[in-house]
């Protein structure tokens, strides 16, 4: 694997706190490469994150970084984006952070279609607190708070976002980091609320309890299940069962909130 841009990493803050085999590092690296490819000026990039294992990524990235409170990253980011619309914001959240405690901010960010790039690291579990179920834990899977398997249905995060007004939705995973990188680049270049859901293995708090094997097994499984949007288009529902459709699921043109606001008060952005 090629070297990451050292400028964008706080190498002195490494080693990171994540467990061996955790997907957070892979997703973070894909994000860094994506930012580099966009050619954005380093000083214009801001990383905002919530609370959780994945949200700790902010501390390792050499930009202006804002590690907020649990679930509220998008609300902080909304304030910052409205104050400084020229900045490029990437908002890293865990599945619980984004869809449970932060669900309200998530749907309203989507509704406003504010130009934020939400990167949701979906490990299907509350990693940081040791393995409780989240709204993205698949039905039947075990968690410390669902020892017999959760009875609750899970959200389809990208459909939820779309229904709420998000104009860009993409799904990738830690097993296919190059593709993930490409998806993040497209999200970054999309004007409006962009959601990238990145499936990521948490062997420690999720894999072990659900007998999914180690990190390597989890990644292999992720890759095997994944199917591109293009290929999926030719398959029927039965054939798509147990597959995850990867790629850009939607990219819609619609007015962006910060731009509309500044336009309405007669001010130019930038």
């Amino acid at each position: 694997m090629e070297q990451l841009t050292q400028d964008f990493l706080r190498t002195k803050k490494l080693p990171h706190i994540w467990c061996p085999g955790c997907g957070n590092g892979i997703v973070t690296a894909a994000l860094v490469r994506a930012i580099e490819r966009t050619g954005f000026d380093q000083k214009d990039v801001v990383i905002v994150s919530g609370i959780g294992c994945s949200s700790r990524a902010a501390g390792y990235l050499n930009f202006n970084t804002l590690h907020t409170t649990h679930g509220r990253a998008l609300a902080f980011a909304t304030g910052l984006k409205m104050a400084r619309p020229e900045l490029k914001l990437f908002v890293i959240m865990g599945d619980g952070d984004c869809s449970a405690i932060g669900g309200n901010h998530f749907i309203h960010s989507a509704r406003r279609n504010i130009d934020l790039n939400a990167i949701i690291v979906n490990n299907h579990i509350y990693g940081m607190t040791g393995g409780q179920h989240s709204p993205l834990t698949p039905t039947g899977k075990k968690a410390t708070t669902a020892p017999r398997g959760t009875l609750e249905p899970s959200f389809d995060l990208l459909e939820l976002a779309k229904g709420a007004g998000a104009t860009f939705g993409a799904k990738g995973n830690a097993a296919q980091p190059r593709q993930l990188e490409q998806l993040i680049i497209r999200a970054a270049n999309h004007k409006g609320f962009s959601v990238v859901e990145a499936l990521s293995p948490c062997p420690i708090a999720y894999g072990r309890r659900n007998k999914l094997g180690g990190a390597v097994d989890m990644l292999r499984d992720m890759k095997e299940k994944s199917i591109s949007v293009e290929k999926a288009a030719n398959l029927d529902e039965a054939e798509l069962k147990d597959r995850t459709v990867n790629g850009v699921l939607y990219a819609i043109d619609a007015p962006e909130f910060a731009e509309s606001y500044y336009h309405s008060i007669g001010k130019e952005i930038g």
């Binding site: 905002v48 804002l66 409170t69 509220r72 609300a75 902080f76 304030g79 910052l80 984006k81 104050a83």
Partner: peptide
């Protein structure tokens, strides 16, 4: 969308 978000947004804007 609520007061939690309002407080968060205000902090975000201050950082801006």
């Amino acid at each position: 969308e609520d007061e939690i978000a309002s407080m968060a947004a205000v902090i975000g804007a201050s950082i801006g």
